[in-house]
Structure formats: C-alpha cells, structure tokens
C-alpha cells in the first residue's frame, strides 16, 4: 500500500490545480450576461426542440458490447502475468487460454454476423 502514497500527493496537487484554475477563472474573467449571449449556440440558428432528445440505440449497443469485451479482456490480465512462469509446467495454461479465446472470437463473429455495429 505504501507504494500508492505518492499517488496521494499527486491527487492533492491535481486537486490544487483544478481549484486554482477554477478560482483564477472566476476572479479574472469579466461578467456581462446578455440574454442572447446565454442562449444555446447552434451555429446562430434558433434551436429547434430540446437537446434532451433520444439518440441512436447503436451507441447503447456499443456500450453494452464494450462491457462484455472489456470484462473478457480483463480476464486475460491475470493469465498474462503468470503465463511466462508457467511455461515449464506444460501447455495447460496455453490450451486454457486458446479455448477461452475461441469463445471470445465466436462472440465477435456473432456480432459481425448480426451487424450490431451498423452506424449509418
């Protein structure tokens, strides 16, 4: 745990920088709010409707797929760490990884076949 102590220092410094930037901006910047200045900027055209509009489900799908694949990729990390040391004990870990990888590739192929990533 002691190795992470300097990260605590860094955290404090980063916080100080954020607070500093925020304060400096508040203190130095003039304020002269005008109704049109505070309006939505959409290239000068009067905005139509709200920006709280529904967006494409494709984005949602990507987030779901990311969760699946990133969790699966995260399972590789412990394997990656011990793989080098396990080489002397035969191919057990290699085979286990290949089986797991095959499942992953199967999932990936399924995504492509279903065309989940259609974005246009």
């Amino acid at each position: 745990m002691e190795a992470f102590l300097p990260v605590g220092f860094l955290l404090i410094f980063a916080l100080l920088l954020c607070i500093g930037l925020f304060t400096v901006k508040r203190l130095l910047g003039p304020r002269n709010p005008v109704a049109s200045k505070l309006a939505v900027y959409e290239c000068g055209v009067t905005p139509e409707g709200s920006a709280r509009a529904p967006f494409k489900t494709a984005f949602y799908l990507i987030a779901v797929l990311f969760l699946l694949f990133d969790v699966e990729a995260a399972f590789f990390f412990p394997w990656a760490l011990v793989y080098r040391q396990s080489l002397s004990e035969g191919p057990a870990l290699l085979i286990a990884m290949l089986v797991y990888m095959a499942l992953l590739v199967l999932g990936l192929v399924y995504i492509f076949r279903k065309d989940c990533l259609k974005l246009n």
């Binding site: 910047g29 003039p30 309006a39």
Partner: peptide
Amino acid sequence: MMMKEVTIPRQ
C-alpha cells in the same frame, strides 16, 4: 484564456 468572460449558458 484566463481574462476571457465567464459565461454559463442559461440552458
């Protein structure tokens, strides 16, 4: 950047 006006849009 620091001297610029701080605007917080209404919406």
